[in-house]
Each structure stands twice: as C-alpha cells, then as structure tokens.
Amino acid sequence: METLLYLVFGLVALVGGVLVIVNRNPVYSALSLVLTMFAVSALYILQQAYFVAAVQIVVYAGAIVVLFLFVIMLLNLGDQGNLPAASGTRRFVGALLGVTFAGIVGAVVWEYASTAGPAAAAAGDIDHTKSLARVLFQNYLLPFEVVSIVLLAALVGVLALIRTHGRGLDSSEADNV
C-alpha cells in the first residue's frame, strides 16, 4: 500500500518535471514546478520527514515559485516570453547527454539500492521536529549562522544589481522632485 503511494507521488513529481521543460509558456512551467514541489513534499511525508515537507511547501511552493511568477509578471513578456523551441541539434545533444547521465546514475542507484538493507533501526527518532532542532542548533550552529550571512549578502547583492545609475534608491531622484 505504502509502496503504491511512493510510486504515485514519484510519478507525479516526474510528470511535473517533464511539464516544466515541455511547456513553452513560463507561467505553465512555474505551475508545473509547483506540482513537482508538492509531489516531492509528499515523498518527504512518506519518509516521516514532516518538518522538511512543511518547509518545502512553504519555501518552495510558497516563496520561490511565487517569486518566479512575480518576475514573469514584472517583465510583462506576453508572447515574447513564449520563445521558439530549441534547435534540433541542441535538443539532440541535451537528450543524449541526459540519457547517458541518467543511465550511469541509474546504474549506480540500482547497484546501491539492491545491496542496501532495510532502513536503520533508529528511524523512529528522526520524525521528531524537536530532535531535528536539537541537532541543528547544537551540531550545526555555526553553519546555520553562516547561512544567515549568505542570505544577507544575497540581499545586498540583489539591491546592488537592481539599482540603476542615476535612477536608484539614492537621493538623486528626490532632488529632482
């Protein structure tokens, strides 16, 4: 029964992924991405990673994909956004590389999965958000703080990138008024 759910949600995630690529319109691509996110989140739940699943929905589906959509709307591309499909050569090269890569990775996965035993005995402990927090704020406190600096840097970087000369957040605009 549970394996069936795994299969279904895995399939949904893959369909979503294919749709991201196949759709011409970026809006549809973004919506397909949301589908994949939800399916992956479901896979998390099936593996008892409830907190990660929740964060997955909140951050990815809720924030990141919305940011994508926001930018698509902001640029107001219209038909210009529906770019023609890639050339045959490029599609061929992409597909060839993709298939080769998938073949190799698949072989590795197959070999690993077939030799792996059942899930570890301690599995019962990992579903507690409390234990997750304990590890995060004890063992991984320094990386956690470093990530906050990375986010700050990203914030500053975005501001610097979006600013335009003479028409930015500085006082020059106010002077013109």
Binding site: I21, I72, A113
Partner: peptide
C-alpha cells in the same frame, strides 16, 4: 521504497539537467 525514491531523485535531476541545456527562456 528506498530504491523508488532514489530513482525519482535521479530522474528529476536528469530532467533538470536536460532543461538547463535545452531551454531558451532564462527563467
């Protein structure tokens, strides 16, 4: 279940790679 999840992961990754290689729209 373990194998299924890994397979989905590998397939999703490949889809991403192919998309990066062939799509024209930067977004």
């Amino acid at each position: 279940d373990f194998a299924i999840c890994l397979a989905v992961s590998a397939a999703l990754f490949t889809l991403g790679v192919v998309g990066v290689l062939v799509k024209r729209n930067a977004i």
